[in-house]
Design a protein around this nucleic acid. Structure first.
Lengths: 223, 223
DNA sequence: TTCATAATATGACTGTTGGTCATTATATTA
DNA sequence: TAATATAATGACCAACAGTCATATTATGAA
């Protein structure tokens, strides 16, 4: 008696292969989508162009993703994981040179320079009408990655407090504030680089450093 | 001999009336658009619905605005002028109580509570594909208003430096940093209030206060 | 008042695009 | 080899931004 729910060995192998093929297709689609979205932005990109670029029919795309928005946010999820890996390297920084949060900012800024385009997605992802067309699972996944990134920054702050470099603050709150500050400044500059330089008259890197300086000054334990 | 370029008195009066009627129509359209955009967001709103709401034909809308995006950003421009007026009240605060930047944050937060929806537009307006469909004049107008708002904050910082409350910093840079910080934090919370509370576990107002506290601590002259 | 002309408004129409689904092609298993 | 399950296709549909030929209204002269 064979129960339809129980698979034999070769069936397991096969279904495993299926899963991998499915993953591979997904990646192929995402690669094409990344190129198109990075080049055109969400609004001007079309699913047809993504399909064309990876030589699949449009219908096939929708076998792998629920909506244009779902593809878009999946790319953001990728980007956040990339950032997470970069920040992960900071885990065993010990702050012996008195620098802790500085390394986090530096890593984040480095990531920005190499992966500017992901930030556009991040900023657009705050729009509720876009989020409405993205699955809860994917959104949760993004949030979890964000939480991990924030956790790394928070740990650095915690380390600094233990070492007496920083005042006794809520590391978690400070991590969130640092994160938001940097994003806010980057958003200001993304807004429109031309006008922005006119308005602020200060280069992004200098502005970030000034901001960090200010916050750090407030953060540092009084000598 | 009458030159077609020269108008007599009644013609001038009439053309003046025309101009006012044109302005009035614009306002009517903007009011309807604001309602629709605030309710549905940019992507889910339709120009047809805006037209319906102000009882005009769609074609008429396009006599007054160049694109859906132009309407959207016009609403943002309105919002920024509103904010400018709120901040304008701070101009003759003298800081006798040792509070300067605090008032700016308080005013900005108050504006946010009353006019949340404008922030969604602000965050979306950083997308280049959207900006591409907005006239340069309108974008310049927005930037000018932003500059004025920042100027007010910058003046408060300058005042604080003169009074010896704050360290000698670049008031303009600090104004930009404060502005960006608050926007960054608000964006974090707009991202998704539910998840965000889960992640940060801290209320927006508390977070803003902590951020201000940190920055102010770095800003304050050492007693 | 009447008619000609200019200014303004209209909504049917067009092209584009996100998403669907009946059909076709391919792989698997008996 | 035939039957069945799985995956891919692209013609099709509905929705929507934006257009433009036509209709309506206001203006000014006679």
């Amino acid at each position: 008696m064979t129960n339809s729910h129980i698979m034999n060995n070769s069936q397991i192998i096969r279904s495993e292969r299926r899963r991998k093929e499915h993953e591979a297709r997904r990646r192929v689609i995402l690669k094409a989508a990344r190129e198109v979205f990075f080049h055109k932005g969400f609004m001007d990109a079309t699913v047809d162009e993504i399909a064309e670029r990876c030589r699949l029919a449009k219908g096939t795309i929708y076998l792998y993703f629920g909506s244009k928005e779902e593809i878009y946010i999946s790319i953001m999820a990728e980007g956040m994981k990339l950032l997470g890996r970069e920040l992960g390297r900071l885990k065993d920084i010990d702050g012996g040179d008195g620098m802790l949060v500085e390394h986090a900012l530096s890593a984040y800024y480095g990531f920005y320079l190499k992966n500017r385009k992901y930030f556009r997605i991040m900023f657009l992802s705050s729009q509720p009408d876009l989020r409405a067309r993205v699955s809860d699972d994917l959104l949760k996944d993004c949030m979890e990655t964000a939480r991990q990134c924030l956790g790394i920054v928070g740990d650095l702050v915690r380390k600094g407090i233990k070492r007496g470099i920083y005042r006794k603050v809520d590391p978690w709150a400070v991590a969130n504030i640092l994160w938001a500050t940097v994003n806010g400044i980057i958003m200001s500059y993304e807004q429109d680089p031309v006008y922005r330089e006119e308005i602020a008259g200060i280069e992004l890197e200098k502005m970030l450093n000034e901001a960090l300086g200010l916050v750090l000054n407030g953060l540092r334990a009084k000598g």
